[in-house]
């Protein structure tokens, strides 16, 4: 505990480094997966190929990937950008399938009726399909978020600073408290990001759970009794 008290600035610094890598990777995974997931969902022939090949990205071992990326992207070996790129690839590997599933989860009656009243394909995608895919998208991005926060620590091995640096440094200098701090903080960051995602989901999808099923049933009964008959 002493170690923690004496090293608060360091812990904060590492947490900041960690977030600066994980958060962009999570956002990029989400954004990039939307068009790819749409293609996989929309063109039946592409679904198997796209989902399988992208899913395989996740099978690439992380350490070699983080070493190869700078060679391709042209950044320095220790640049956090490498890690963001690598983590985004892993995120996409998980998120494309979720996106395709999410778009597939939208009630086809609702889609048809949106087209029937005059949404163009583009308008329907942004105003109907994507929002209604929200719950499944949210479930997907929550998995990506946890996975990304945990994978970010791997960068410490090749010298990219994050909460993982607390484990590597703790091991080298044999400071148990530092190792534990690294682990606890990583979990805490994952939990906080997850909470934030859930809150964003609530804010963006107010129609979900606007009313409990039981209350809806009661409303419906009451409406039939009074409103309907007199209206």
């Amino acid at each position: 505990m002493n170690w923690v008290a004496n090293n608060l600035p360091l812990i904060l610094q590492r947490t900041g480094d960690h977030l600066a890598i994980a958060v962009p990777a999570i956002i990029l995974s989400f954004v990039i997966s939307i068009p790819i997931g749409w293609v996989a969902h929309h063109y039946r022939w592409s679904r198997g190929t796209v989902l399988t090949s992208i899913g395989l990205l996740y099978a690439i071992p992380s350490l070699p990937l983080f070493i190869v990326i700078p060679l391709i992207v042209g950044t320095g070996l220790r640049s956090p950008v490498n890690l963001v790129v690598g983590l985004t690839l892993y995120g996409i590997a998980l998120m494309v399938r979720s996106t395709a599933d999410a778009l597939g989860s939208v009630d086809s009656n609702v889609e048809q009726s949106a087209s029937a009243v005059g949404f163009s394909a583009w308008q329907r995608f942004w105003r109907v399909d994507l929002p209604l895919a929200g719950p499944v998208l949210l479930a997907g991005i929550r998995v990506v978020s946890v996975s990304t926060v945990s994978l970010t620590t791997v960068g410490a091995v090749i010298g990219i600073s994050s909460l993982g640096s607390l484990f590597t440094d703790g091991f080298q200098r044999n400071i148990t408290a530092e190792i534990y701090t690294g682990i606890v903080m990583t979990i805490l960051v994952a939990l906080v990001l997850d909470l934030i995602l859930v809150m964003i989901g609530r804010a963006l999808m107010p129609w979900i759970g606007a009313v409990s099923p039981r209350r809806a049933a009661r409303n419906a009964r009451a409406a039939r009794r009074s409103g309907e008959v007199t209206a």
Partner: peptide
Amino acid sequence: VALRRRIGYVMQNSGLLPHFKVIENVATV
């Protein structure tokens, strides 16, 4: 698309957009 916007369409199970409020559903077109 233009044709559909000048023809009203009502279907079974209302086909309302579940994420739009009543007023937004009515004002859609």
